[in-house]
Design a protein around this nucleic acid. Sequence first.
DNA 1: GTCTATAGCAGGATAGAC
DNA 2: GTCTATCCTGCTATAGAC
Lengths: 215, 215
Amino acid sequence: MSQDHTRQADLTRERLLDEAERLFAERGYDAVSLREITSAADAHLAAVNYHFGSKENLYLEVFRQRWMERARKIQAPLQELEKREHYTPEEVVRTLAKAFLSGPLSDEDRVRHSQLISREMGQQSKVFNLISQETMAPFMEMAIRMWQRCLPQETDPERLKLIVLSIFSQVLYFNFARPVVTLTTGREYDQEFVDQLVEHITQFALRGLNGDKGK
Amino acid sequence: MSQDHTRQADLTRERLLDEAERLFAERGYDAVSLREITSAADAHLAAVNYHFGSKENLYLEVFRQRWMERARKIQAPLQELEKREHYTPEEVVRTLAKAFLSGPLSDEDRVRHSQLISREMGQQSKVFNLISQETMAPFMEMAIRMWQRCLPQETDPERLKLIVLSIFSQVLYFNFARPVVTLTTGREYDQEFVDQLVEHITQFALRGLNGDKGK
DNA sequence: GTCTATAGCAGGATAGAC
DNA sequence: GTCTATCCTGCTATAGAC
């Protein structure tokens, strides 16, 4: 009996997280009210304070329990690749681009993921500190480590860092600034276009990586 | 006498625009109250409604009278270049990167410019429609036109569009996601680092542009 | 024209009924 | 444990005093 209650409470908690995430992603923290979230989640107004203590903490939990979980899914393909004995720089770049643009997430999740993080990247905040330490920094280190292992010659780590940032900027932008991309190219985000984007970013970055071959 | 009043009113109007822009850029539309804006601008609470009619319209005017003006300044170097009889793809890319990252604006203005637009690029809004029609689309067309004129061979306009978007994503990101960049590279945004960024983006994009030479 | 004072409402949080 | 009813603060917008 008390188990049923617990289960019910857990479900409400999950629905609150889902709806909060969707609304925060679409319109940002301040534009969304608790009344909106609770009624979307079919819960009573006090539910947020009951389950999460405060609006701010609900926001933090959205990142801790939804965003970071998805970040792990995005990183998984690259971790798999790292376990292999051999891989090429091209495989690293393509795996990275693919993971963000057509990877394991649903399209909705992908957009939400980008929207949430791009709202936080502008200045240091609680969420920013959490994410950058636990997710972004390790991921960047992994990418750099992998290239250093498979690039034909020793490459300046400073340069590799800038290249990783450039790649990140592109995957973020192509996910998040879809209105601009659609307006410029006249293309919708169907499978064909996303594949083209992955290929574009891959080739673009790969040339950047190999660029100093001749020097 | 009435001229003095007019001048005084104009000054208040300008101060309101300045402070509103700063605050909107830092924290977004919904997080900023009219009380905050008017007291920062040393005006009375009713001043916003008197001068601009509503908070929303003040926001729109920030874009119309501040953001777009700066966008013109950023575009100027590229327009100058276009008037010349000859220029190289490298000059186009470097001028573009420089205009955004170390161009005619002050550093503060540059950050504000990126923060304001990145808050609007996620979804279609009044501001987005204004900006994309009046500023972004013409600028993109100019860049593509210039490359098509100076690149050694005819290049697929579809590909050029993606390249412009990739360059935009990087200049936006390196201006706007400074916390991430600083955390990753350990570098502050001093003159030396900004010059390095311009060079990085230039080389990166140039290789992307020339990439299909051999094909 | 300028600004004070306030209307009218929506926000987050919580006390206390069930 | 759950949720209603309510508190109080802070919001935008405006009427009307000067």
